[in-house]
Write a protein that binds this DNA or RNA. Structure first.
Length: 813
RNA sequence: GCCCAGGUGGCGAAACUGGUAGACGUACUACCUUGAGGUGGUAGCGCCCGCAAGGGCAUGCGGGUUCAAAUCCCGCCCUGGGCACCA
């Protein structure tokens, strides 16, 4: 018997597929298209670990099944290669990041290829390739043209270790997401992208896509849409202090409002999602940064106290703010009052750190009866807490002259980084003309080679040191000008890469319109949970912008999005270099073969869930493949001596009819199960059902060639090399990849007889074989005359009998 | 604090719409094959009592609904991930 030599077989077929372009997507085809996508990897210097291939294999299973179902499949790969780890490595070693990237991608490519993933390598892209980032820069210029890219002086999150600005999203618990260093606040001019302009649509259009519910939810939570009312509260001089010493009633909070009205000094616009609670508003709070505070300087009696507080808050970093355990602080603005427009009552005005300048209007009406935060504050400063009946939100808003509005938590995207290894932002600063975009014909603005990749403490990119590159001519007036030295964040290149795969070599445009029309949207995008908020949101934003410019044909980039769980180290801890528990797939491929690794990774646990790696369990996958191999050999041998006629298709199996039909029946059930499970990413249960089938086939006296071939077809997405080898051994001239996915015979999977459970008072006591169409009466009769049942009844009458068709019968005594 | 996911044998896990809990795989034990190995094969394997037949107990904990609950409802506990005063 021929040995199962995985090394030989896998190499043979990988060469065959490459030579035949088996997995190349066709730009012109009569077949329906299918675009399946994974998140392209960041080629780190450590190479692949066994966690990387899990999503690649998962989507490979989908892609391979689609091909057999007759689709023209696009399943591409590339490299998301800009970013800090490579740059930091360059700083440490003095090596050019281009060289490092080349080396890393070569390793990744070799490793991924050894797994037999059916990527279309002819469309490989790399975000650091000037031919690629030319278009990243071009898209930026379109944003700029439409006013969606703008420069603003803002307090940014500054990482003193990485020496770069970070987006809000990259700050985790007040620390840099990458290196864990506490971030500082710095005022800097930054490039911004106006993602907030798309907030409404980014939220609403989630209705039209097929994302896992948690993914939609995380998008929605991040966007943070809330509906409420904007209501103006007039600010007046404190009458109580000015005209009367009469103390207002403590409990009711009544002021001296019944007297003639003060003329307002101004007003504070508040945002509330609960205008219906307005009668319970007992004070008003402004954010310390609120502009009204400076305007009312003269009227505020305790100005020095107020000023001191404002400065304190301003100088606090985010960590200091959060480290204080949420104890709210604040100062009353003495000398002024606000008028609650609902009842004309005077209420006190405060500034407090729990009101954010960056959300809503930076001012709130405090309703301590209904809001926990307001209650905390009111309790601390002994402010009135009153319970008033709720009113209709819309009516009261209208009555007090407010209006219903929608607000979002989402902020504009800080798009500048002060680092080297990123796409240069393609603009020029001219003394005369100001900010001038680089003309499109001059793209790409290539990253110049530098000697020193070290970022500077001044907060400038290392690019700023290369005067030859920085000093340039203004494209408009030809006068002296300087290049922008900030680069784009890592998210830029990954915001549109799926579009480039469609037409990766186009020099005229980022992708041909017709090809976009044919291939997009992506039919199924699977990626990590860690990218279901930011990357997904950013790329949806870019896509919608391009859609508005008429450059892409659909409003959403991804039709369907799923997420896979991480593979953890043995024992369920994270796989990491520092813990020394990283498993390199090369070792597994060498010892057990790529097919074994593939089957194991799909079998290890539910695809969507994190699972711990277990090297000792891999052997199960290997045994399964060897079993399939042995059966294949038997089928092969019996084909040669087919004088018995038993293995010829269509010939009834004579004395072996029983075994024949039971294997065929199981096969049909398995085809159904595998077909359905793959669609639900239940790869683990799909494999388990094929394991059962293999065991049955091995036990059976004969296996029909036709049946076995169908088995190979449904196995092929998981173990493509061995399937291909056995397929050809059976005399097939063409690849299993160009065969047709088998269907199951509905009639064959229906059983004529089934076993049902007999329960007595809900406990299983016996079983009974019945005909599927046997009537209830007959089953009941047979149950009651069953020996075991009679024993349990002990002559008692059955109070009730519940029969569940073809499942069980429960006798209640 | 809020949101999401989850809690089932030694381990990874199955279980359709409420209907045989533990499929499949590992580990373990025994046996077979082999000169010897194991990346080979077969069988047993939730826990407790029992030689067995059989019985009892079991899906994080406590209640409830139901003929019947891992699954539905109520209240807790624990683990992982995310958010962090967003009015």
């Amino acid at each position: 018997m021929k040995e199962y030599d995985h090394k030989k077989i896998e190499k043979k077929w990988q060469i065959f597929w490459e030579k035949n372009g088996t997995y190349h997507a066709q730009n012109k085809s009569k077949k329906p298209k299918y675009y399946s996508l994974i998140e392209f990897p960041y080629p780190s210097g450590d190479g692949l670990h066994v966690g990387h291939p899990r999503p690649y294999i998962g989507m490979d299973v989908i892609s391979r099944k689609r091909r057999l179902e007759g689709c023209n499949v696009l399943y591409p790969i590339g490299w998301d290669a800009f970013g800090l780890p490579t740059e930091n490595f360059a700083i440490k070693t003095g090596k050019d990041p281009r060289v490092v990237t080349k080396k890393n991608t070569d390793t990744f490519r070799r490793q991924i290829k050894s797994l037999g993933v059916s990527f279309d390598w002819s469309r490989e892209i790399n975000t650091t390739d000037p031919k690629y980032y030319k278009w990243t820069q071009w898209i930026f210029l379109q944003f700029l043209k439409k006013g969606l890219a703008y420069k603003a002086k803002i307090a940014i999150n500054w990482c003193p270790k990485d020496k770069t600005g970070l987006a809000n999203e990259e700050v985790v618990g007040g620390c840099c997401e990458r290196c864990g260093t506490p971030v500082e606040k710095r005022e800097k001019e930054q490039w911004m992208l106006a993602i907030t302009k798309y907030a409404e649509r980014l939220d609403k259009d989630l209705d039209d896509v097929d994302y896992l519910p948690q993914i939609k939810l995380s998008q929605r939570n991040w966007i943070g849409r809330s509906e409420g009312a904007e209501i103006d509260f007039n600010i007046v001089a404190n009458r109580a202090e000015t005209f009367s010493k009469t103390a207002p009633s403590e409990t009711e909070g009544h002021g001296t409002h019944t007297f003639s009205k003060n003329s307002p000094l101004g007003f504070a616009k508040v945002f509330t999602t609960r205008p219906d609670t307005i009668f319970g508003a007992t004070y008003l709070v402004l954010a310390p940064e609120h502009e009204l505070i400076q305007k009312l300087k003269k009227q505020i009696k305790n100005w020095s106290e107020v000023e001191k507080y404002v400065n304190e808050i301003k100088n606090k970093t985010d960590i200091e703010r959060t480290a204080e355990d949420k104890t709210k602080t604040g100062v009353e603005l003495k000398g002024i009052k606000a008028i609650n427009p609902a009842n004309e009552e005077e209420i006190s005005v405060w500034i407090a750190d729990y009101v954010l300048a960056t959300y809503g209007t930076g001012a709130i009406m405090a309703v301590p009866e209904h809001d926990e935060r307001d209650r905390d504050f009111a309790t601390k400063y002994s402010l009135p807490i009153i319970n008033k009946p709720l009113v209709d939100a819309r009516e009261i808003t209208k009555k007090v002259g407010g209006k219903m509005v929608t607000k979002f938590k989402l902020r504009d995207w800080v798009f500048s980084r002060q680092r080297y290894w990123g796409e240069p932002i393609p603009v020029v600063h001219c003394e005369k003309c100001g900010i001038v975009p680089v003309p499109e014909k001059d793209l790409p603005i290539e990253l110049p080679k530098v000697k020193n990749y070290q970022p500077t403490d001044s907060g400038e990119s290392p690019l700023a040191n290369i005067s030859k590159w920085v000093n340039t001519k203004c494209p408009k007036c030809k006068g002296v000008a300087k290049r922008e030295t900030d680069t784009m964040p890592n998210w830029a290149g990954s915001s549109w890469y799926y579009l480039r795969y469609v037409d990766p070599k186009n020099k005229k445009i980022f992708a041909d319109k017709k090809l976009l029309k044919y291939w997009t949207p992506v039919d199924w995008y699977n990626g990590g949970n860690e990218h279901t908020t930011l990357h997904l949101l950013y790329s949806r934003f870019w896509h919608k912008f391009l859609y508005d410019q008429g450059l892409v044909p659909t409003a959403e980039p991804y039709k369907k999005r799923t997420a896979h769980g991480m593979i953890l180290g043995e024992g369920g801890v994270k796989m990491s270099k520092s813990l020394g528990n990283v498993i390199n797939p090369d070792e597994i491929v060498k010892t057990y073969g790529a097919d074994t690794l593939r089957v194991y990774e799909m079998f290890i646990g539910p695809f969507s869930q994190s699972v711990a790696w277990s090297t000792e369990s891999i052997i199960g996958a290997r045994r399964f493949i060897e079993k399939v191999w042995r059966i294949g050999f038997r089928v092969q041998v019996s084909k040669q001596k087919n004088s018995s006629g038993l293995t010829l298709p269509g010939v009834p199996g004579g004395t072996h009819t029983v075994q024949n039909s039971s294997v065929s029946k199981l096969l049909n059930k398995t085809i159904k199960k595998v077909s359905e499970d793959i669609e639900d990413t239940h790869f683990n249960t799909a494999i388990s059902s094929m394991m059962i089938l293999a065991t049955e086939m091995e036990k059976a006296e004969i296996v029909r060639r036709e049946d076995y071939k169908k088995f190979l077809q449904i196995l092929s997405p998981f173990a493509p090399h061995v399937a291909e080898e056995l397929w050809s051994t059976l005399g097939e001239k063409k690849s299993v990849n160009v065969s047709i996915w088998p269907t199951w015979d509905k009639k064959l999977i229906e059983d004529e007889e089934v076993k049902i459970m007999i329960q007595i008072n809900g406990k299983v006591r016996a079983e009974l074989m019945i005909n599927v169409d046997e009537n209830e009466e007959s089953i009941k009769r047979r149950t009651l005359s069953d020996e075991v049942v009679m024993k349990y009844l002990e002559g008692r009458e059955a109070k009730r009998i519940v029969y569940v068709k073809n499942r069980l019968i429960n006798v209640v005594v």
